[in-house]
Design a protein around this nucleic acid. Structure first.
Lengths: 344, 344
DNA sequence: TTTTAGCACTCTCACGGTGAGAGTGCTAAA
DNA sequence: TTTAGCACTCTCACCGTGAGAGTGCTAAAA
């Protein structure tokens, strides 16, 4: 004889597993036929009644089977699911793919998005790693043509930024190089505050360059999310819950519209102090656009220095186990890569 | 009394206009009520019969009104539509927005995608401008940490590329700078062929750098499409033709899957010799994924030097007039910007 | 006290029939 | 060549029906 509560947990887990597979309401008879529960369907029915009363299951209509509620999924994720890891061969394959991408951050991002989308069969999103504060490393000024100068600014952590600098009059490359060397000497390893506090008499050219440098460094840290990569959008459209295009539209907008996505990320994984993978089910009452979907998010990078976020967006009826382990693994991998890159 | 053929053209145009608005089959009575045609519904019915026989209209079923066929749209776009331009105030607004984006190519791309999506109420896509061949302009080698060196390569046309160069042993910045100067002297304005033909004895460091330069320059021109920007994906999901998610999925895949998109672009606008805006209606029998949608495409940039592509993807029932003029205008604007940037 | 068999009950869904409405094509007259 | 008139066809919304699924309850069994 099994403990009453034990059976409730078992059956909730089974219903979620089956429902994630089939997208069909699950009945008592179906369960006893497929699993060796050792009890009759009537007993299962009692348990189903309990779980329904507890708010973890619901019936679409009287004569239908049970479907997990959002609360049911939450309970499952928090208490029932366990901490399964990705199978080792999968991990090795993924690691290998990142290894092949070399030092190219853009390729990392695309690869991460592709892997997440593929593993979870849902939509994925990855934001480029963003330094939380800018630290001057190196400057180059390169004459292009006429009064336009290309400024290449290297920041700590391997972040490279380019800007065009429009001068009042043409300047020779020699003079540009001299100015760059001068600025490099004074600004080495300074942050924005340090550069602002600099008390040196620069010439007009250097001042122009410094102005642009300040602007560019000010931009760093102003936003927590950089370029956004995504993949697998067409995956979610094949899910039955997104056939009424309205919920699909809302979900798409979260990925497309930068402001929505930034709000979501900043209020979840990019909040300092929060660690690990976060699971948002059905918008959690906060995000109307996510009412019909779930999001699995994680931060990656080196906290306090350079971080980004990644995650998966799919139907509420999602294979949380696999998705969460993939998100966890890819984020830890990216964290390692970012840390290595910073050490360079 | 109006010429028979004249009436056919008028009525086809009216049906397309109405159908694009309402997405409902249009009947003879509806037309005579809304437009002052000067003839009875019976006459209109005869004309409808003609147009149906010509293959420009069809009936979803016997007792329904008429709907344009793909052939009908094609005829409309080619013969009936005229060459309406965007209203001047709209043009001014758009021009102003690009002006505000400064010299930032990434912002141009995002802005173009946003404008196209917004104006056409459909999905838009823009590929970054790609030089057709690489010409060496300038090189910088910057020590970062240990054996990792940041290589910044400036190509003609303002294209800047960065790569990490991993050395066998650490090298001081002085020596890196000297090597860069050396390479700059020898490679100035050379293309890949010229660099390969170079007959100079370089030291190990310079040879490493040159190897990477060759790789990077070889990458230019290898693909005709660079980074792809898009916007307005959620627009198309609101169209009634995309409620059955299968056609929406196929359309999304064209935008998401690089290989599909590249094939499409290279076989249409990026084919040399083709000029102006191209309209593909219903996949034109060639692209299965586009069977249920239309694409309005154009090339932009400076032909033979640096070009990109842009376009709009929407339902076949699309407001071709407005979309085509927007695509034409934005592409000409981007062409100007790219030309200016090349002159710098 | 827990489990189970039995059973009545409820609800959905697929099916077929029906009638209103829309739009047509044809015919014959203008 | 155009038009009025009309019969015809097809869809679509509506309804009623019955099979099927799954339930909750009750009373007996363990």
């Amino acid at each position: 004889m099994v403990d009453r509560e034990e059976r409730q947990r078992l059956i909730l887990a089974l219903i979620i597993r089956e429902y994630v597979d089939t997208a069909q309401p699950i009945g008592s008879q179906y369960l006893v036929e497929r699993y060796d529960l050792g009890v009759s369907s009537a007993t299962v029915r009692n348990t189903l009644g309990d779980l329904t009363e507890m708010g973890y299951l619901r019936q679409p209509h009287t004569s239908a089977g049970r479907v997990p509620t959002e609360e049911g999924y939450r309970f499952f994720v928090r208490q029932l699911m366990g901490h399964a890891d990705l199978p080792s061969p999968v991990k090795r394959t993924i690691t290998h793919q990142f290894y092949q991408a070399g030092h190219d951050v853009e390729r990392w991002m695309r690869l991460a998005a592709s892997i997440l989308a593929h593993q979870s069969q849902a939509a994925s999103l990855v934001t480029a790693p963003m330094p939380e504060s800018a630290q001057f490393k190196h400057l180059e000024l390169i004459a292009t043509h006429g009064r336009q100068v290309l400024m290449v600014l290297v920041l700590a952590g391997g972040d490279v930024r380019q800007q065009m600098l429009a001068l009042a009059e043409p300047v020779a490359q020699d003079q540009l190089s001299a100015t760059a060397i001068l600025i490099n000497q004074h600004c080495q390893n300074l942050d924005l505050k340090g550069i602002n506090a600099l008390n040196v008499q620069f010439d007009a050219l250097a001042q122009d360059a410094l102005k642009l440098i300040r602007e560019e460094m000010g931009r760093v840290g102003a936003s927590l999310t950089g370029e956004v990569y995504h993949d697998g959008l067409s995956n979610v459209l094949s899910e039955p819950e997104f056939v009424e295009s309205e919920s699909a539209r809302k979900a798409l907008r979260v990925i497309e519209e930068r402001s929505l996505l930034e709000d979501l990320l900043e209020r979840t994984v990019l909040t300092n102090g929060v660690e690990g993978v976060q699971v948002l089910i059905g918008g959690e009452g906060t995000w109307e656009e996510l009412r019909d979907c779930s999001v699995v998010l994680a931060r990656y990078g080196v906290p306090g220095h350079t971080t980004g976020a990644l995650g998966v967006l799919g139907p509420i009826r999602m294979a949380y186990g696999r998705t969460i382990s993939t998100v966890r693994f890819v984020s830890s991998l990216l964290s390692e890569l970012v840390a290595e890159r910073m050490a360079e």
